[in-house]
């Protein structure tokens, strides 16, 4: 098995964080994984994206022209990365910040109001975790304990933050599971 992912948004949306958490989840499930991040010269507000590759064999290629999943947290990311989704791949789009628009018929679109869900939970900053939950819902069930460990690895044991983010993650997860 070999899957690859691009997560993209603007600086401050927590793109790199959930990229790292996703990569940690794969690591904790004993997969080979690579994680590359890319951001512009702007320290805040610029375009940010990262690429995660996972496999049950040693990973040679760590950057791919096409990926199985794209998570686009804003309109710019949606526009930029739609072409990078592999045929029969999936794009998850934050419909709170991007217009619903299907320009390709050989991929699967998931439009989810990620920011609205996070706001309903009470914290707009949790948009990224909602997105990760949606992605996890599509990939199948991860052991929640390992997800928690992944969050702890990245958030360095900020317990309160971990708990809030797991709540957001579960909201995203349930959103997709409940259709």
């Amino acid at each position: 098995m070999n899957k690859n992912f691009i997560i993209s948004g603007s600086g401050g949306q927590g793109v790199i964080s959930i990229g790292g958490i996703l990569a940690n989840i794969f690591m904790l499930n004993d997969f080979f994984v690579s994680f590359c991040s890319c951001y512009g010269a702007e320290m805040r507000g610029g375009a940010v994206n990262c690429e995660i590759n996972m496999s049950d064999e040693e990973l040679f290629c760590i950057e791919n022209e096409e990926v199985d999943y794209v998570v686009a947290l804003n309109q710019t990311s949606f526009d930029k990365f739609i072409s990078r989704v592999r045929e029969n791949g999936t794009i998850i789009v934050n419909s709170s910040l991007a217009k619903i628009n299907k320009t390709r018929d050989n991929i699967k679109y998931i439009f989810a109001p990620l920011t609205d869900i996070a706001v309903k939970l009470g914290n707009i900053k949790m948009t990224n975790s909602v997105a990760l939950g949606v992605l996890a819902g599509l990939l199948g069930n991860f052991n929640v304990e390992k997800v928690k460990m992944a969050y702890e690895n990245v958030l360095k044991n900020k317990k309160e933050l971990v708990k809030k983010n797991i709540d957001a993650y579960l909201l995203g997860y349930n959103y997709i599971q409940e259709g």
Partner: peptide
Amino acid sequence: LLGQMAEP
């Protein structure tokens, strides 16, 4: 790239 990427 190797300096900037992450792997376990």
